[in-house]
């Protein structure tokens, strides 16, 4: 190595630590607040605080207000803030709300399972056979999802409508002689539309869990005598269960409160709880009842989600 003598190492330095104490840098005792801010935890909290504060103010705050509202009552335009359970009584016992809630839960659970079952082979394909093009595959699969929520549902209305694409196409081909009236304005139309809308959401967590699966485990199982089906049931399925659960939840919970799909393709028989909630905050203007409907929906869907997680955990234990 060449000329070191040209340098005067150690003699010069960028800043002399003996220089006057820097602002904010104190070596002696300091206030506990300052000490916390300089600690690892303090820096972490300080960094995350702007987005966290925003989420607290605009998510937690409003949700607390909604929960509070659900225990009040409304007379025309004035809110009576005495505690009451009347709204919950109405939300959970009146047949109209009970039916809507049951239907919403049925739709969201069905959509979640249908979506996940249909998506699993696709996630498997991308993860195991995607090769260099995994990223491209994921992009191709997620693009339709980005095309706009309202527009996707509108498309299905155009496809399934009485005078829509499917009916007119089948008529043109001579498969049917008059339009089918069973395509749209029922629960099935809602389920089809939602399952299509949420496909990408289900594939991503499934793909991630399949990617994490160590391929040598499958080879080991094969080496120990398991065929493809047993390998799937004993290795792949239990180890990708977290992804399956995540995919189910990420579809089920948001869809329970879907508003646009039942409105556009659900008709009278496909109305869901979100439509009833919207009415309370719009035309009917009964905030406390709307709030109670919203809170009940969230609580019940959370309980149902918990039950499904427990059930799947049980299945996972059985697969050995």
């Amino acid at each position: 190595m060449a000329t070191a003598s040209a340098f005067s190492y150690g003699k010069e330095q960028h800043l002399d630590p003996s220089a006057p104490t820097l602002p904010g840098v104190r070596t002696a005792r300091e206030a506990p607040v300052m000490r916390f801010m300089r600690s690892e935890a303090g820096k972490g909290w300080l960094t995350i605080s702007p987005p966290l504060l925003y989420a607290v103010l605009l998510l937690i705050g409003p949700i607390i207000v909604i929960v509070a509202n659900s225990f009040w009552s409304q007379d025309y335009l004035t809110i009576d803030r005495t505690f009451t359970l009347e709204n919950y009584k109405a939300a959970l016992t009146e047949p109209i709300y009970r039916d809507l809630l049951m239907r919403s839960l049925f739709v969201s659970v069905t959509v979640a399972f249908v979506t996940v079952i249909l998506a699993y082979p696709v996630a498997w394909f991308v993860s195991f056979h995607g090769g260099r093009y995994k990223g491209l595959w994921l992009f191709i699969i997620t693009v339709p999802f980005w095309s706009g929520y309202l527009l996707r549902i509108l498309s299905w209305k155009v496809i399934l409508g009485y005078k829509g694409v499917l009916n007119s196409g089948l008529l043109y081909l001579g498969v049917i002689t008059e339009p089918l009236s069973t395509l749209i304005y029922n629960v099935n139309a809602v389920i089809i539309t939602l399952a299509h809308s949420w496909a990408a959401f289900a594939i991503l967590p499934l793909f991630v869990s399949l990617e994490k699966l160590d391929r040598s485990l499958l080879e080991a199982a094969a080496d120990l005598g398991d065929g493809p089906v047993r390998r799937f049931l004993r290795i792949t399925l239990p180890l990708t269960m977290p992804g399956i659960i995540a995919a189910l939840m990420i579809v089920m919970i948001p869809t329970v409160g879907d508003y646009v799909t039942p409105k556009l393709v659900g008709g009278k028989d496909g109305v869901m709880i979100a439509n009833a909630i919207q009415v309370q905050f719009g035309k009917a203007s009964n905030w406390p009842l709307g709030a109670a409907l919203a809170v009940s929906t969230m609580v019940i869907v959370s309980l149902l989600a918990g039950a499904i997680v427990l059930m799947l955990a049980g299945i996972k234990r059985l697969l050995k």
Partner: peptide, 21 residues
């Protein structure tokens, strides 16, 4: 989790809570 929560909450819940507030 709190920051990511809107991803999984039904939008109608977020919408009505913000509206009321």
């Amino acid at each position: 989790g709190l920051i990511m929560a809107p991803l999984i909450l039904p939008e109608i819940i977020i919408a009505i809570s913000l509206l009321v507030v």
